[in-house]
Design a protein around this nucleic acid. Structure first.
Lengths: 342, 342
DNA sequence: CTGTTAGCGCCTTCAT
DNA sequence: ATGAAGGCGCTAACAG
């Protein structure tokens, strides 16, 4: 086995409590003993066993992160923000993915038990009561991108509604009226919010019935491609497409290119998220910028504040982070301007 | 506190040993007791405390991953591969980053102690003896992208030498002779290997002295930009640039565009890694494809095999994974072909 | 100031 | 087949 506190005590010629006191700096210890403990500890290469500490009810120093995936630019950016915050706070990150499968998700939650002091959870597919029970499990949790009310947890969302409203309004302001939407997965709260924003902006422009303009999708490029193929066959053909996210928009752009339709002159396209690669589509994508990394950072900081007792146990916050419209060539030819909508 | 094995025992009217036996399926237990234990356990929502288990010398079920960063397409892809493998093997991932700072790295290693059963480490900046001491720490370790001999650990590398050789040879075959290279960080083993490959291919083409053609860089886009600015001022001007990685190549492309030089007609450019965005540079980048995700997966599997005792304790493997030349528009105009070089 | 002791939750002999 | 008891490494009372 590895070296324990007892080995250090023996080596230093003191009791184990003295070693503990020196290493944790919890009570004053005579200088010579203190020194010999420190030396013995270094000599032996002693590392306290975190399991033993944890057993005594101490914090373990880890934060769990539960995401659908780790790949894709969205999650990458989120992880980056979390990582920066973790480094600052001396927490380590335990990461699990659910791949949208509820069972994998629950298994991951189980696995986190007692291994982390808190959790950051993004689980669009999870039912409200499952979330509630996680929130009550004893481990503090922050939910991300979650539209469930009354959780005993902090909840952080982007302004999905506002962003979708803004990008749709941008199109109506350009004169578009037949604006199709490629929706996100029907179960996901963020996708619903984006749909709501689209409908509201359409209604404001006088289009109150959008049923014929709504097409199914699931945030993937493939779905965007397939939906756009349907859209271009619709008569009268929509003059613009609001895609639920950037990947989906990228798929739509491919389909429009295949169909020989000019973007934005014959069909304009918009996305959502502003992942880095959206600057490089042809034409570059008009979209809604989401400050993902900053978002991750803030979520983390708030959770750490709670763990450190700086937040009342029963004080929960529901926070909506602003987003920003980014106008590029996929809606207005040969122009690249950016505007904030609030 | 949370519910312990004792609570379950009381609820089920048996001893804690019986509970343990039932839950771990370690010895036969009378059917009715077994059932009441299972029910009690579910009723109370019992979760074994992993800290207590770990204290008894059991595996903790986690794998540590230590990387310079989590952002950037390279690390993202690597994480993805690791994540897939982790999910399969029911391991959780503990992730830490060093940001290239040796002290952060060492702190992270400390933090992993006894919290994980094994570690996957990528630390280009770490000294050989530090690696050796990590390898001997008791926790099995796999090193990634590491050029240090004689480690008591598995070591996985890409064929950095071969890839650089191939991409340089591709240029010499096109007739180029004044081929500049923008190097990676001088301390990094992979960068050294890439430089070696470049020099070998140049020598093969009859250019044995490349000193005037070598420019400093550090894998960043900014460095690529700066280096290319120097390169275009060189007389006689190089006709091609081998960049140490794709980001660096992207910076060089920007600089060449700013200088009004046509790619590839006046200056050809190559990268290394084939990160996804390299398909979208203008022109698309000729580069070396590295199967990063697959790589992560394999590294993980091998480590798990070791943890499960399927590998002899003192059997270490040094593995080099093949790479592939991808030819795009940045070296040959209006063509997009892909070839394997081995 | 310092050593001794009692657990934290669990698994594992050792008896029964 | 099952219960009692010891101990993993550590911290925090409790005595000196």
């Amino acid at each position: 086995m590895s070296v324990t506190i007892r080995d250090v005590a023996r080596q230093a010629g003191v009791s184990i409590s003295t070693v503990s006191r020196v290493l944790n700096d919890t009570c004053p210890v005579r200088e010579d003993k203190r020194r010999s403990v420190i030396e013995a500890s270094r000599l032996l290469g002693y590392r306290p066993n975190p399991a033993a500490r944890s057993l005594l009810g101490k914090k373990v120093g880890g934060l769990g992160v539960l995401l659908p995936y780790v790949s894709g630019e969205f999650f990458t950016e989120l992880l980056h923000g979390l990582d920066v915050a973790a480094q600052e706070s001396k927490f380590f990150l335990v990461i699990s993915t659910s791949h949208g499968v509820v069972d994998e998700f629950k298994a991951a939650i189980q696995a986190m038990h007692k291994r982390v002091d808190g959790m950051i959870v993004m689980a669009p597919e999870l039912a409200a009561d499952d979330m509630a029970s996680i929130a009550k499990s004893g481990t503090p949790v922050s939910f991300v991108n979650t539209y469930v009310d009354g959780l005993d947890a902090d909840v952080f969302n982007f302004d999905n509604y506002g962003g979708a409203f803004a990008v749709t309004q941008h199109l109506t302001a350009l004169g578009h009226r037949r604006i199709a939407i490629i929706k996100g997965p029907s179960g996901a709260g963020d996708a619903r919010e984006r749909l709501r924003g689209y409908r509201a902006a359409m209604a404001e422009a006088g289009v109150s019935d959008t049923r014929r303009l709504e097409f199914d999708g699931d945030y993937t490029q493939a779905a965007g491609f397939a939906a756009a193929e349907l859209i271009v066959q619709t008569a009268p053909r929509p003059t613009a497409i609001v895609a639920a996210n950037d990947y989906c928009a990228a798929g739509a752009i491919s389909a429009l290119n295949d169909a020989g339709l000019a973007i934005p002159d014959e069909v304009a396209v918009t996305g959502f998220d502003d992942v880095p690669s959206s600057q490089y589509t042809l034409p570059p994508l008009t979209t809604v910028r989401v400050p993902i990394r900053e978002f991750g950072y803030q979520v983390f900081r708030r959770l750490v504040a709670r763990l450190e007792g700086q937040v009342e146990e029963d004080e929960f916050r529901q926070q909506v982070l602003p987003v920003e419209l980014v106008v590029r060539g996929s809606t207005v030819g040969a122009v690249s301007q950016r505007g904030s909508f609030r």
